[in-house]
Design a protein around this nucleic acid. Structure first.
Lengths: 224, 224
DNA sequence: ACCTGAACACCGTTCAAGT
DNA sequence: ACCTGAACACCGTTCAAGT
């Protein structure tokens, strides 16, 4: 419930004595605000208010809202565990990496269309992650020319699954069309009977499938 | 180059003699405008202008821009080929279906975050598609309780891949970090040497992997 | 019922004025 | 250099007035 962070008395125009804002402070306030109120109400104005500052002040530190979103993406990326490739067999490492990746971006779904198109050179942490994943594939003897396609395919699945994780639980309710879709409704009932969350079941099923499919076709051998 | 569709003379306020707009006309104009100018300049104002009408006139026919986007989604969905499940073996049908699905939404990437969250009962064509795909799985003897997770997993991969297909070609250029990422840059060079488009290679690699992985684990038997 | 035109409540962003 | 406050150029949407 942090409406304002500081500034009990109103600041006059003109350069303040000490620096009021910096990149670290802005990014931190943005993440707090996002956690509390979500992306739909995340505006430059709301962010400025939470910092006790006028909206235009932000533009002394960040070029645009788009750039601010890139700062956030970079921080969020830190939640993805890519240390596992150094210690675990490739299959297990991919599972853990993919799960953290999907979970982290399910909380930040609006960043996904951005990332998918953002040059990786704008995001050092993304590059570090790629290096770790590529090393994992390499160590498992995976074909070098298939490594990038495999990583991109996994990421596509992860981003799509993160979007799917934000869907309402009753998204598949056929509503007024109930009774007219025998095959689909049968499958739906069978899935529901398992008691598993649909999005989670889909993610785990798909992740197992894509990982085993990738490793079955592209790996030279599996010393692990 | 169709700035205005009709209305050579300016219309006065008040109800016109014949109906000027309807759902069909609005949706068609929206698609034309999107094809010509893309989503970034797709505003209610621009759409109204292309119809020779004032922006507020649109609200007599559509509740919100969001609803209009749903009309468009419904039309775009028509480009997905789900007839193949009635005639081809499941594996081949899934390949064709997935490719048309991804291609169609690569052209309409901004719809993806919308669809991922839209109740299927709002989209009859999506439901018909699910029925066709579910029938394909069923006919191949696929486990009923695994069918919905399999479809959702495939869709997640398809949506992610459609987003990826909109990325710039040089998205993986390490820029100033060149030389510091030996494994990743090696993999990148190997992939580049194949001469294949990176997004397409990833999609085909991933699609093969996920389909074979799904059918290997969930199918009772394969009569095909 | 269905149009126009003015108005509303926002956005992100720019910029002169102030220290 | 770095703030405020006013202003700009948009958004989507509402609504009274008109036929």
């Amino acid at each position: 419930m942090s409406e304002e962070v500081a500034a009990p008395t109103r600041r006059r125009a003109g350069r303040p004595r000490g620096m009021v804002l910096d990149r670290e402070l802005i990014a931190r306030a943005a993440l707090t605000l996002l956690a509390e109120r979500g992306y739909s109400s995340f505006t430059m104005s709301a962010l400025a208010k939470s910092l006790g500052v006028s909206p235009s002040a932000l533009y002394n530190h960040v070029k645009s809202k788009q750039e601010l979103m890139q700062w956030i993406q970079e921080i969020v990326m830190d939640g993805v565990d890519s240390t596992v490739f150094a210690t675990l067999p490739l299959t297990e490492a991919l599972f853990i990496w993919a799960r953290t990746y999907r979970d982290v971006f399910a909380e930040h779904a609006p960043l996904i269309p951005l990332i998918a198109v953002l040059p990786v050179s704008d995001s050092p942490r993304t590059l570090e992650m790629y290096e770790a994943v590529a090393a994992g594939f390499s160590r498992a003897g995976y074909s070098a020319e298939s490594t990038v396609p495999a990583i991109v395919a996994l990421e596509s699945f992860i981003f799509g699954s993160a979007l799917d994780a934000t869907a309402p639980l009753d998204i598949f309710d056929p509503g007024q069309y109930a009774g007219r879709l025998p095959e689909f409704e049968g499958a739906l009932a069978a899935q529901r009977a398992t008691g598993l969350n649909s999005a989670d079941a889909a993610f785990l099923t798909g992740l197992r499938a894509i990982i085993s499919g990738l490793l079955a076709t592209g790996a030279a051998d599996f010393p692990e």
